[in-house]
């Protein structure tokens, strides 16, 4: 599948944003992290900023963005529509939560309820994003039990690493969040390795035989219907990543998982303000690594239409 940068950035940014929003909502609402003004302003600003930037970016690949509002109408059947509805609804409790925390300086009472509702909205929205991909039967690498948990794990991972960077930066570092970000990154690494292992061994029942209805033997493409690449091949016959996938997988692992684990481990050993440096670096490096991971998620996915072209 063609990795459109707008969609790669969209899923990575909103994943991190919703992860951070959910953690701030739960940990703030339950008074586990303090109602610090700067943490509230920068933390919620960053979370909602990432979400808004991601959602705006996702409209970048639309042919008719001015009709985007129509995408809220078909939530009964379409995961994409559900994602749109969930993302907009989540802004309501998230906005109230931010109002209470930043302007009234409190995270208990109704503000806590808003925080918990925002966390639920964030989790639901990430689920809908995962289901857009997991529900597509023609793409075996996505239509698997690994896809939905991956979106949830990566949101928790990038969100917790961001939260840790913020807490360390404001000198209110929490060992609990530090441990959480380390464990979440290790979980993300493990899940990605398991996913790649699963995809590499995938035996897809759909073949050139079932695609053409020609039973038995071999079906070899002799001639395409057209001489140049068409929409189908540009959009779904993307092949560059498969050529470099081994190198890109190493790069994704180094940036998204290995380096952040080392940097978070270094944070344990350092006092404030030095602890802030590796924590912030971990968040930046991991975001870059997740962009590579998400690029591969698209580029390594093979659509059944490529069978018609002998690819």
């Amino acid at each position: 599948m063609h990795p459109a940068f707008s969609v790669v950035f969209f899923t990575t940014a909103t994943g991190a944003g919703y992860g951070l929003l959910a953690l701030l909502g739960v940990l703030g609402g339950l008074q586990i992290v303090p109602a610090d003004f700067w943490l509230g302003l920068v933390g919620l600003g960053l979370a909602l900023g990432l979400i808004a930037a991601g959602l705006l970016s996702s409209t970048g690949h639309l042919g008719r963005p001015e009709r985007g509002w129509r995408a809220f109408s078909q939530w009964r059947s379409s995961w994409l529509s559900r994602e749109g509805v969930a993302s907009v609804i989540t802004f309501i409790p998230a906005g109230l939560f931010g109002l209470g925390w930043v302007f009234f300086g409190r995270t208990e009472g109704w503000v806590a309820i808003a925080g918990l509702l925002a966390a639920i909205g964030a989790i639901v929205t990430v689920c809908t994003t995962g289901m857009i991909y997991a529900s597509l039967k023609p793409i075996a690498q996505w239509h698997s039990r690994y896809t939905l948990p991956a979106y949830l794990i990566f949101a928790a991972m990038t969100g917790s690493v961001l939260l840790n960077a913020l807490l360390q930066g404001f000198g209110i570092g929490s060992t609990g969040v530090l441990v959480l970000s380390l464990l979440a990154t290790l979980a993300g690494w493990g899940w990605k390795l398991a996913t790649w292992r699963h995809n590499d061994r995938l035996e897809i029942p759909t073949t050139a035989n079932t695609a053409t209805g020609l039973a038995g033997g071999t079906v070899r493409s002799l001639e395409w219907p057209h001489t140049e690449e068409n929409y189908l091949l540009k959009e779904m016959g993307f092949r560059i990543a498969r050529k470099h996938s081994a190198k890109l997988r190493m790069l994704a692992q180094a940036l998204a998982f290995a380096l952040p684990v080392l940097l978070i481990a270094a944070t344990f050993a350092l006092p404030w303000p030095y602890a802030a440096v590796p924590s912030v670096l971990a968040a930046i490096v991991q975001f870059a690594g997740m962009l590579v991971e998400r690029w591969l998620f698209f580029a390594e996915a093979k659509h059944t239409v490529t069978l018609y072209y002998g690819r």
């Binding site: 042919g63 129509r70 995408a71 994409l80 929409y231 959009e235 779904m236």
Partner: peptide, 24 residues
Amino acid sequence: KCIGCKLCSWACPYGAREFDTDVG
């Protein structure tokens, strides 16, 4: 009503849908 999100072309295993880049 089409916004040109292209998701339908991803959902079709047969490659029946083609995007018109000119009209969007």
